[in-house]
Structure formats: C-alpha cells, structure tokens
Design a binder for these strands. Structure first.
Length: 684
DNA sequence: GAGCACTGC
C-alpha cells in the first residue's frame, strides 16, 4: 500500500474561482462600456470595492444587461432579487424573476428568501416549478422559477411583459433551457429594452455572455458585477504519473486519507454505478485490515438510481468515531451539497450523453471533465472548513483539460427545442442567435423529422397540429400518440402509457439475490404484448392499491417514479381536454392500443433475428434488447416490434418494446415517408 | 443473456 507521500502539492491557477475564494469577503462592483470590458479579470483590477448594497442597485438600474460572477454561497441568488425589490423594480405590479436549472434550487431558495423578507412563501416571494405553483398572480414580487418554466411562459407571453427584471442564475451550467432563454431574452430586449437582464455564473466564462449580448446591438453600456463568496481554501494535489485504473487508485487514496489525515469526511467522484460499486467493494474488503485505533469508515454510494432513502442516508452525519466516505457520480458536483466534506478525491472523468444527429443515436460516454468542473469538484471540500482535493491525474493533465463542458444544446436532439422556437415565431433558425450554435446537421435533421411527422409544413412553418404539439410538455412522438388516441378510442390508456414512458427507472432492481426477487415481482405485471402494456399494468396496480410507498417496495417498483407518472398524467390530461381529445377506455382491446403506439413511434420499427438481436427498419442497425424489457428473453410472435428509444452504450440498445404487426408500420410509412430521400419504410 | 451520468417542461 503506498502512502500519500508521492502527492505533489500544487494550487489552482490565478484567476480561478478557488484562488479568489481565499480573498476576504466583500463585493466588487465594476461598470464599463460594452465592448471595452470584455475581460472580467481586467475589470476587477480596475474597479473599486463597494460594500454597500445601494451601489449594487445603482449599477443594475442604469444599464440593460448585467453579468454577475459569484460562486455558490456568495448570496447572489438570495440577495440580488431583494436589492432589486427594495430599489423599486417590483413596483407597479412588476415581477422580478430569478431562474434556476433545478426544481430543488427554485423551491429552497424561495423558502429562504421568503423568511428573510418576513413573508409567507407564495405571497411576496414565491416559486413556480412544473406541477407546483406557489405564487400569487397579484401579490408575488420576487419569483423563483425553473428556466424551463420561464421558457414555456414565453410561448404564452412572448415579451414576458409581467417581468421588469429576469435573472438567469447558474448560467455556467448551460442547460438547454438556459441557452434557449438567453437567446429569447436577447430578442425580447430588442422589442422591449426596458426589460433588464442579469446573467449570473460561477465561472469566468461569463465574459462570453457579455459578448453575446453586445454583439449586433447598438452601442450601450453593460455592467459587470463580481461578488466574492465565503469559502475556505482547498489544497490541491495531483498525481505525478497518470494512473491506468482510477478506481483502484481512488481506493488506495481514500484508505490513506483515513490513516494519515485528520478527521473529516471524504467525497469521491467516479462516473457511474458500476465504478461506485467496485470502489465500495474494494474498500469493504480492506476494512478488516484497519489497524486498531484507526478511525472506522462508514461507506455510502450516491447516484440518482438509488432509492430516495438510500440517497438521504449519504447526507446523515457519521456516528462518533466514524469517518464518512461517499462515493458519488456527478450528482454531487452541482445538484446536491453534502455538509462536512473535507477531502475530495476526483477521478477527473464524467459520463456524458451526446446525440449523433446522423444516426439519431444518443450515446453515453466517459470523458475527461472540464477545468471548471474540476474546480467545482475541489470546491466541495471547502464549504465548512479548509480542505484538500486529490486529483487522480497529473497537474499537466489538468492544464490540458477543456476550460468548460460543451453546452448541452450542442449535443442534444433539437426536435423539441426547434418546434418550440417555431412556436415563438422564430422560423429562420439559421438566423437565430444561439449562445453556442448547435451543429448545422443537428438543426437540419430536427427539421426533417418535424416535417416527416407532420409538425412542420413544406413552407417551414408550423402546421395546425404542430402548434398544438408545441404546447404539450412531452416529446413529439408521445404527443402524436396522444392525438391519435382519438381515432383508436383509447385515450385513457394512452395517457398512462405516455406518462409512464416519460419517467425512467420504474422497476427497481436491487443487487444480488434481491435482484432475482425483483425480477419475479416484475413478472406479476408482465403483458405478453410487451413493455408499454406492462408499464400500464404497473401503473394501474399502483393506483388500485392506494398509491402506497410500502406497496411499491414490496413489488420492486419505484414510488418516486410512479408518483411522478401520476402528476405527469394529470398534467397531460388537462392538455387533452383543452384540445378536445376524448379520454376513452379501450375496453381491454390491446390491439387498438398497440396500433395507437405505432402512430407515434412508427419510425422506431425493428425486426427480430435468429440470434436474439433486432435490426432497425431505418438503417438496418444491429440492436440489442435492454435486459429490463419483458421481451429480453422472448421472441415476439410476429417477429416485429417498435421501441421507445435506442441508446449506444457498449452496444446499441433498445428500451421499452412492444410487439406489432409489420403492416402497421407500412401504413404510417406510406403516410409520412421520408421526404428528403423519397424512400419510405420498407418491411421485408 | 445482462445494465442507466444529470436535469427539465
């Protein structure tokens, strides 16, 4: 067993967030004309330090766009909206909006600010997230919402006329909706210059946002505000040599931290469930060799696939005499904060989903993290006291990492975003000002698929059904299926299937012997026809047995997923009623149901092969059935299926399958054949 | 015959 002696001490470079974190608390406020002050570092050096919040107000009041740099904990999210309120920005019925990429952030921040203001949550201060609107249309002055909700609001009110200020918080995370919102806000400000925009980021790439808003606009002035957060210094150490196996190295390092370093919990960043389990097994094997008198270890896994109670267990403080070790995915980088972490072990890798528009395949691959991510991970060690971060790669590797992660909009399926942009009247997508442009191929393929599915006409404009589908908060294929349910008289069941395919991880599979048990439980719901109907059975059983969490546990179902499906179903039901779609029961006619599913997913047909794999109708790709499918072990009687989605991991896998008749595919293939190549679906 | 990073409407 090696010791920690080989660690080469080092610090993060000047100008990085961590470096600045060691500075005294206080706020730096700067203002400079657009174009002149593109460098935030330069602006910081030039400009005076103010400690009075009035100065902050002044800056925002005078200029249209504000770029805000401040790391977690500096109070930008909670304080700035309050300053704006005090300064009168919420007068005359105006609302100050602050967007968050995640639901938990929107709710928890709103609760805190409501307390600080001395108001009841939902009165002067409120929040809006999907399924939950805790705000008052007349009384709420400061509103926290998810960026997805605000984007949806632009579909109804294209100028966002109820807001005087929109603050896009955590913009550095660059979620799809953050990027779409920024694009739309730039457009809105041309028509309504009185709308103030604040873009808030924890990393220094914020200067890019300033460039974005200033380009193509008449000369004006923008403001750069920089707030310093309160954080403790974190000592950074790198490996001298790269390691061939970072999981083994992580085990080694955690073990040595425990033997050689003072008390404090350890957080390990790995990429996925498999690595986490391997790391925890390795540590568990070492436990019997722990010297007498050494601190004992309490081991926790943390990833989104775990049931809620197991996730929460990782947040509980360890018992006296124990050191907590949490082995986590990227979920601990930004989504959750764990108190008491003093040591971070960073593999330097992350699993990321990318979409290939040419093959319409999304794949999950392990890639090196960005420098911004590595800094963010290290920062997790310095929230309650000084800490240390052990990077399982050399310092030279850190320097060669990309500065930031590729924005999601550049590596995702654009079908839904483009449908929504068109609904906003943005028809010429080549002229839309993206913060980061997605690949042209991705835009073209998305347009093609919208034309093929009848959402967009040959003129490039939305069709009547396209307008309606754009309003529905589901993907296009599901919306098509909902609309088709009128013809097949099965709205009630299709509504459930739509909700159940939207949530993931319905069937819980515990490890080991319990896994086999879960498999047996799942068979109770199995429908011969395939996974869609199996999901329908599970949902119906869930509601029949009182939506109880203990019932779910006994039947290896995820209570969280099913509860979410109930909410989504209720929301989609409202849309169906609004569009005058009947919600009829199919009277047990599974054939009608399956035909209705094909109406949305006819492009996802596949043919069974003798070796147990499938071939896709489009492209003749070799497909493997996901082990979770009820058709994993069975040949479909007709030899044909349609599937909900395909994904590339080690192999190309298809999930959620239903057996169909091949001529159903032909029916839709003729109706909506591929306009570009002139080739329809061939079923032979 | 075997597996899924994380969000959001």
């Amino acid at each position: 067993m090696s010791s920690l002696q080989f660690w080469k001490p080092g610090t993060v470079g000047p100008g990085s967030t961590l470096d600045r974190a060691t500075e005294a608390e206080g706020s730096v406020i700067s203002s400079a004309p657009i174009g002149a002050a593109v460098s935030i570092q330069a602006a910081r050096e030039r400009l005076p330090i103010f400690k009075h919040k009035e100065k902050l107000l002044y800056c925002v009041e005078n200029y249209g766009v504000t770029i805000l740099v401040g790391q977690t904990g500096c109070g930008k999210t909670t304080q700035l909206p309050q300053y704006l309120h005090e300064a009168g920005w919420a007068a005359d019925g105006n609302v100050i909006a602050c967007t968050q990429p995640r639901r938990v952030a929107a709710t928890s921040v709103a609760a805190r600010v409501a307390t600080e203001v001395g108001s009841i949550l939902g009165d002067e201060v409120g929040y809006t997230i999907r399924f939950e609107d805790v705000s008052d249309k007349k009384r709420t002055r400061i509103l926290y919402l998810t960026d997805g909700i605000l984007f949806r609001e632009t579909l109804l009110d294209p100028l966002l006329s109820r807001y005087s200020v929109v603050m896009i918080d955590e913009a550095h995370e660059r979620s799809v909706y953050t990027d779409l919102m920024l694009g739309v806000l730039k457009k809105i400000r041309r028509k309504r210059p009185s709308l103030r925009v604040i873009v808030s980021s924890a990393t220094l790439d914020a200067a890019g946002f300033l460039d974005y808003f200033s380009s193509g606009n008449p000369p004006g002035e923008a403001t750069i505000v920089s707030l310093e957060g309160r954080m403790y210094p974190v000592h950074i150490a790198h490996l001298e040599q790269p390691t061939p196996d970072y999981v083994a190295k992580a085990i080694d390092v955690v073990w040595n931290i425990n033997l050689q370093r003072s008390s404090g919990d350890v957080l390990v960043f790995l990429t996925g469930r498999e690595e986490i389990d391997r790391c925890l097994e390795g540590l568990a094997e070492l436990l019997p060799t722990l010297p007498r008198g050494a601190t004992r270890l309490k081991l926790h896994a943390l990833h989104s696939g775990l049931p809620m109670d197991e996730q929460l267990a990782a947040f509980e403080p360890a018992e006296r005499g124990f050191r907590k070790v949490i082995v986590s995915t990227n979920i601990a980088e930004a989504s959750v904060t764990i108190e008491g972490i003093k040591y971070v072990v960073d593999s330097g890798f992350v699993k990321i989903r990318t979409y290939n528009p040419t093959t319409s395949l999304s794949s999950l691959s392990t890639i090196p993290v960005s420098r911004a991510s590595a800094i963010q991970r290290a920062g997790r060690a310095g929230r309650t006291s000084y800490g240390a971060c052990y990077r399982l790669y050399p310092a030279s590797t850190f320097e060669s990492l990309p500065p930031t992660t590729q924005p999601e909009i550049t590596r995702t399926d654009l079908t839904t975003p483009i449908l929504q942009l068109k609904s906003l009247g943005i028809d010429d997508l080549m002229k839309f000002e993206w913060v980061s442009s997605p690949p042209a191929e991705a835009v073209l393929r998305a347009l093609e698929s919208l034309v093929a599915s009848g959402m967009v006409g040959e003129d490039g404009r939305l069709t009547v059904i396209g307008e309606k589908v754009a309003e529905c908060p589901v993907e296009v294929n599901i919306a098509r299926m909902l609309f088709a349910s009128k013809d097949y008289q099965c709205g009630e069941e299709i509504l459930t299937i739509a909700a159940m395919t939207t949530v993931q991880d319905v069937f819980v599979i515990p490890d080991g012997a319990a896994g086999a048990l879960a498999e047996l439980e799942r068979r109770k719901f199995t429908a011969e026809e395939g996974d869609h109907l199996t999901l329908l059975n599970a949902y119906n059983a869930f509601t029949r047995y009182g939506r109880s969490s203990s019932w779910c546990k006994a039947h290896a179902l995820s209570f969280r997923a099913l509860s979410r499906a109930v909410s989504i179903r209720a929301q989609l039901k409202k849309y169906m009623q609004r569009f005058g779609l009947p919600i009829e029961n199919c009277q047990g006619d599974a054939k009608r149901l399956r035909q209705c599913i094909v109406s949305g997913y006819w492009r996802n047909g596949a043919k069974w092969m003798a070796d147990g794999t499938y071939r896709s109708v489009r492209g003749n790709v070799v497909l493997h059935v996901h082990p979770n499918s009820v058709l994993f072990t069975r040949k479909p009687r007709s030899g044909w299926v349609i599937f909900h989605e395909m994904e590339e991991t080690k192999k190309t896998q298809i999930r959620i399958l239903t057996e169909i008749e091949p001529d159903w595919l032909l029916e839709y293939g003729h109706k909506f054949h591929d306009k570009r190549t002139g080739v329809g679906v061939s079923v032979r």
